[in-house]
Write a protein that binds this DNA or RNA. Structure first.
Lengths: 211, 211, 211, 211
DNA sequence: AATGAATGAGGTTTCATTCAT
DNA sequence: GATGAATGAAACCTCATTCAT
């Protein structure tokens, strides 16, 4: 009854099949998000049946965790390797940053696995974020900026907002800090930059806006 | 068992009840995420039944969208108001940044609504992110940094990573850009800072690491 | 706060408003079927609120029953009136058939209310159908019929009605046909029978009843 | 309390279980109508759980459509087979009519599935009906018919089918009648016509087709 | 007389997960 | 080692109906 043609794909050992299944899971999770695909979908995409995934990974959560760990490990290796032969802080920083983007560039799906999923309201979220980015952008445009980089203001605004968001996320887990401290931290990075900080400068408000 | 206070709350007009329901939805979504709570849960938390939410907001998606829009509107207003009387770029920037953190500080739940949800694998995600943050942190620690700000290196690392993530997100929608261009952008911000950029400086690699 | 313009439509007495509401219900039920519309839909189409319908008709089932009875009453009157001045059985039959199709022709929605979906109101539907069958039956009983087949008159009446109903269903999709043509068709079948038609005969009215 | 027989029925293959489930669905739909039963009800009657029905049939609508198609196919086969060895139009007609009623006689529930409520599956219902109408139409086209009435054959076919359907509806409430009696009744109307019946003629089969 | 507010109950559908073969 | 069969649980959504004003 069994089809002979398919036999060549069957009965692989665990060491052969498991990475294959994990790669498929990363891809499908990356494309459609955790809640956007079912175990059935992933199993079908991998060409095996659901019980195989349960046998190898235990549960959907564990499978997703395995995907995250898998991608994170690869990214970490890429970043670690990138700076191994650099001593100068500036060159080291750039090497790492470049390695990061090179990694992402070839693996958009894997990157998506590391970012949280949007869902049906992605549009709304993007709009909300866009509002803040626009505000930042208009502010940048009002400043004197080198001519050649004017087209780069949009991604720059995204980066500024992203830095603030990450600080806010960190702050959620460290509520003992004051808003003023957080704001100063953000200023230290985005105003002075690492070069300024490396030179020993510290940003401080001349006069704190009233609350 | 029935709370007398809630009895007096019955039969409110839509103008009174709808914002109340929206506030509850923001809170519950913020606490548990979109997929982490059901309409039933939200309705119960608001002290009404599901059909009220469907009557006023249409669907779970639309409710979530309304929450996002609600929070985004408030945040935007806070940011817009913050810089209204500032002309100096530095002071304006700081005013905005401070307003942002002051907004978040009082409304952690609302902030969570604007961030995507983690789910059962939040821990794993945090660990993955932590790997990259640690890498960045060790690099910062190896640099000469002003003594007083050494405790600030951890949030600084988060901010750096957050800026990169936002750039990567933006890049997903603009795949025509090269990894090198993206990396240079990141450097412009994090190395020179807005002060440097405002002074007309442009960051460029002295020598590009080989791919 | 109340809009003066709408006041002219308000506060109608029950005698004025109830038939209006019933007509709307017949139309909406006819268009979309019992399960295809909600009380909310019907109320909106009638320009009143749901509680009005509940106050006047009790429940959705009772409303549907009222619609059926309303249409059936009109149809019965049309058929009864049609044969009032005819003695010749052939002419009488044609008059009734013609009246039936003329009735349907002007009120497709009402016809649909008599044909659609059974359910909790099946009894009411059967009763409405029985009215027409009884009318046909009494006409048959008045004719000379072979003794042995007298018991067969009831199902025969059902068949006659069923043939007409099927023609009416077909007519709904071919509205370019006139009521007269439809009536002639019905006569061709039920008066001559296939034997007659097969022998080359064609039924035609000697004199068309005036509309 | 658990029935031992059903225990032995567990873990059937799809080939065995699916027809069994379909039969149950036809029965329950026939008894209670589309809106009169839930998927839960049908699943319970079949001795399985809802997800099995969704796995095999997709949705409630698709299940109902499958039921209609199932019954229609059987009916069509019965009617087609019935006339295969008849040349005489009269005998052929009777054979078909008899086959129709014989079919209905053994499967009242299946008949109800073809007659009850329209809805999202109206298309499927119309198609099923069209099959029978087409069969009748082709038979009519093979007979000698007066030239002028040839265009009327389509509605004539509808009427013939409608008369049979009405007789079948009546029969559902009078199950003491035999299929043969019902077929003779149908012939009395459609072959002799009311003119013939009025003249005292009675249609009777010269020889009853063997069952 | 009329309505906006509110709900109980039920329906379809999906999905992570397990069992028997 | 691998799978088709099967399910428990829960989610979203709708709607007939009633209550308080």
């Amino acid at each position: 009854m069994a089809n002979v043609d398919t036999v060549t794909q069957r009965r692989l050992s665990r060491e052969e099949r498991e990475p294959q299944m994990l790669d498929t899971a990363v891809r499908v999770f990356g494309e459609r998000g955790y809640h956007g695909c079912s175990m059935e979908d992933i199993a079908a995409a991998a060409g095996v049946t659901k019980p195989m995934f349960y046998a190898y990974f235990g549960s959907k959560d564990e499978l997703y965790a395995a995907c995250i760990a898998h991608v994170a490990r690869q990214l970490e290796q890429a970043l670690t390797a990138a700076g191994s032969d650099e001593d100068d802080p500036e060159r080291l920083t750039f090497a790492r940053v470049l390695a990061f983007f090179r990694f992402i560039g070839g693996r958009r799906d894997q990157w998506r696995v590391l970012r949280r999923e949007a869902g049906p309201f992605a549009e709304e979220l993007a709009r909300a974020r866009g509002t803040i980015v626009d505000l930042t952008l208009r502010q940048l445009e009002a400043s004197p900026v080198p001519a050649g980089s004017r087209a780069d203001l949009v991604p720059l605004a995204h980066a500024l907002v992203g830095a603030g968001e990450a600080l806010a996320d960190w702050w959620v887990d460290h509520p003992e800090e004051s808003a003023e401290t957080m704001a100063v931290r953000q200023m230290n990075l985005i105003w002075l930059g690492l070069e300024g900080l490396g030179a020993g400068r510290v940003w401080a408000p001349q006069q704190l806006p009233a609350e």
